[in-house]
Design a protein around this nucleic acid. Structure first.
Lengths: 130, 130
DNA sequence: CAGAATCCGGCATGATACTG
DNA sequence: CAGTATCATGCCGGATTCTG
């Protein structure tokens, strides 16, 4: 399939908002952090890490930074020893929560079906036809 | 941050549905294909490719296969020369559409703000304090 | 405690060639 | 036309080490 670029150097469907949303939140952790903060309110760095369970320090830092850069979360540093840093959702961040929840709800409702579909599909591949 | 695995070999928060949803639809193309089919109805392979614009033949195949395996789209082969294959959403696939749309809508509304936030954030990094 | 910096492997994605 | 097969690659994310 030969894809044609337009004169602006972009692709025809690159600009659509669904792509932009996926580019920002399709990563492994962002949505999860937003969801977590929406439930727990205000948390410090290590608390977020523990609540998520598996996430490397690096990725937690990277995720929090990009969310902060986007203005979805606010970061407050307390100049203490040992240092303490707390995070919470901004208004903008909170506005995203309902949409995450509705996606999650859909997942809850249909994931069992999907997994079963997938199993059936794979078993059909193994036994083509008799 | 040291993450502890439990006895089942999984991590503490791995099972939450939001993760599952992201694992399936956080990829680059799946949501886009579903969204496209929801608007255009029934399309053949090459039509999907052209509508998306940039997507390699390989990734289109992979994406369509996994969506089919999940039962989100239906694939119909017409035994003609040259071959023709058409795709359309299943009921399950259609049930996902509203959630994609609501996310997309959120993106449309707030993306300009986010991009601006990001620009402001980066300019602050360059000029720390005067 | 909250990170910054670095190294590194694997997998998602891309490019290319071939086929029924 | 609608794929499959193979090879190449970028970069995401994990592990580790170091600092204030």
């Amino acid at each position: 399939m030969v894809m044609t670029k337009n004169t602006s150097g972009k692709y025809s469907a690159v600009d659509c908002p669904i792509r932009q949303v996926l580019d920002r939140f399709g990563d492994k952790w962002s949505m999860l952090v937003v969801e977590l903060l929406s439930h727990k309110g205000r948390l410090r760095f290590s608390e977020i890490g523990h609540n998520i369970g598996d996430i490397s320090q690096k990725m937690l830092t990277v995720t929090l930074r990009s969310l902060e850069a986007d203005g979805l979360i606010a970061r407050e540093i307390f100049p203490e020893i040992p240092p303490r840093v707390e995070y919470e959702l901004t208004t903008l961040g909170m506005s995203l929560v309902p949409h995450i929840e509705s996606m999650t709800l859909w997942g809850k409702e249909h994931l069992a079906t999907i997994l079963n579909n997938r199993k059936v599909y794979e078993s059909k591949l193994k036994k083509p036809s008799y």
